[in-house]
Simulated assay, not measured.
Amino acid sequence: MKNYSFLNDVKSKEKLLVQKKMKKTKDEDKKKELAKLLNRMNQQEQIEQKKRHRMEMEQQWKEKEKQLVKDGKTPYFLKKSEKKKLELAEKYKELQKSGKVDQYMSKRLKKNAQKEKKKLPGRHQRFM
C-alpha cells in the first residue's frame, strides 16, 4: 500500500476529470455513462476506506496483544467471527454518534424478513 500510494492521487484526479466532463457534456447517454463511472469510483473509494479501517483495527489489536504477551499473557489470535463482531460493534458506535441507529436497525429487520419469506414454501412450490 505504501508503494502504490501515488495511485490515490491519480484516482482523485481522474474523478475530478470525470466530474468536469459530466458537467460539460450535453448528450444524455454520455452523461449516464459518466454518472455510472463516477458512482463506481465512489464505491471503490468507500470499499478502500473500509479496508484500511479494518486493517488499522487489526493492527491495533495486534499491538495490544504484543504488549500483553510481553507482560506474560499467552497470545490470543482473533477468529474471523470475532473480527466481524468487533467490526459490528464499531459500526454500532459510529451509528450512535450520528444518530442513525434506528434507521439502520429498521433496514436490517426488513432485510432479514425478506430472507425469511424466501425460505418459506410458496404457492408455486409443491410438497414432495
Rank of each mutant, 00 (worst) to 15 (best):
residue 100 K to A: 15
residue 120 L to H: 06
residue 110 K to D: 04
residue 116 E to T: 14
residue 4 Y to H: 11
residue 9 D to I: 13
residue 27 D to N: 13
residue 128 M to D: 09
residue 79 K to L: 13
residue 58 E to S: 01
residue 10 V to K: 12
residue 105 M to E: 14
residue 53 H to R: 05
residue 113 A to I: 12
residue 87 E to D: 04
residue 8 N to M: 12
residue 114 Q to H: 13
residue 43 Q to G: 04
residue 52 R to K: 14
residue 73 K to D: 06
residue 113 A to N: 09
residue 81 S to G: 04
residue 5 S to L: 07
residue 101 V to F: 13
residue 42 N to W: 02
residue 94 E to Q: 14
residue 7 L to N: 07
residue 103 Q to F: 15
residue 13 K to E: 10
residue 18 V to A: 01
residue 27 D to Q: 11
residue 93 K to R: 09
residue 109 L to T: 09
residue 56 E to K: 07
residue 29 D to K: 10
residue 80 K to G: 09
residue 127 F to G: 14
residue 76 Y to D: 11
residue 39 N to K: 01
residue 92 Y to G: 06
residue 54 R to S: 00
residue 120 L to F: 03
residue 45 E to Y: 05
residue 60 Q to G: 11
residue 71 D to P: 03
residue 100 K to Y: 13
residue 4 Y to T: 01
residue 47 I to H: 05
residue 92 Y to A: 11
residue 61 W to K: 04
residue 21 K to V: 04
residue 75 P to N: 00
residue 29 D to M: 10
residue 85 K to V: 03
residue 63 E to R: 08
residue 126 R to S: 10
residue 83 K to T: 08
residue 92 Y to Q: 10
residue 28 E to M: 10
residue 87 E to T: 02
residue 62 K to A: 07
residue 81 S to C: 00
residue 91 K to T: 05
residue 91 K to S: 12
residue 53 H to N: 01
residue 94 E to W: 09
residue 59 Q to C: 03
residue 15 K to Y: 12
residue 113 A to V: 11
residue 5 S to M: 07
residue 116 E to A: 15
residue 118 K to E: 12
residue 11 K to H: 06
residue 118 K to Q: 12
residue 107 K to S: 12
residue 100 K to V: 14
residue 15 K to P: 02
residue 49 Q to M: 08
residue 84 K to H: 09
residue 74 T to V: 15
residue 65 E to W: 00
residue 29 D to L: 04
residue 74 T to E: 13
residue 96 Q to M: 08
residue 115 K to N: 15
residue 117 K to P: 03
residue 78 L to V: 02
residue 49 Q to G: 06
residue 2 K to G: 12
residue 80 K to E: 08
residue 114 Q to C: 12
residue 1 M to T: 06
residue 104 Y to F: 15
residue 2 K to A: 14
residue 50 K to S: 00
residue 116 E to W: 14
residue 35 A to D: 10
residue 121 P to D: 09
residue 83 K to H: 05
residue 25 T to D: 14
residue 74 T to R: 15
residue 11 K to I: 08
residue 92 Y to V: 10
residue 12 S to K: 14
residue 41 M to R: 10
residue 81 S to P: 01
residue 43 Q to R: 12
residue 23 K to C: 06
residue 38 L to P: 02
residue 52 R to P: 00
residue 113 A to H: 10
residue 64 K to N: 12
residue 103 Q to M: 15
residue 67 Q to W: 06
residue 96 Q to G: 02
residue 71 D to E: 11
residue 43 Q to F: 10
residue 87 E to W: 01
residue 33 E to W: 04
residue 121 P to Q: 13
residue 89 A to D: 07
residue 4 Y to P: 01
residue 73 K to R: 07
residue 51 K to Q: 03
residue 45 E to Q: 13
residue 80 K to C: 01
residue 28 E to P: 04
residue 16 L to C: 04
residue 100 K to M: 14
residue 116 E to H: 15
residue 87 E to G: 02
residue 93 K to W: 05
residue 47 I to C: 01
residue 16 L to E: 11
residue 11 K to L: 08
residue 96 Q to T: 03
residue 79 K to C: 02
residue 96 Q to S: 10
residue 15 K to G: 02
residue 58 E to L: 03
residue 67 Q to N: 10
residue 15 K to F: 07
residue 56 E to G: 04
residue 23 K to I: 06
residue 41 M to K: 05
residue 91 K to P: 02
residue 86 L to A: 10
residue 88 L to S: 05
residue 81 S to K: 07
residue 23 K to H: 11
residue 75 P to W: 01
residue 4 Y to L: 09
residue 125 Q to N: 14
residue 92 Y to P: 00
residue 49 Q to W: 03
residue 100 K to G: 11
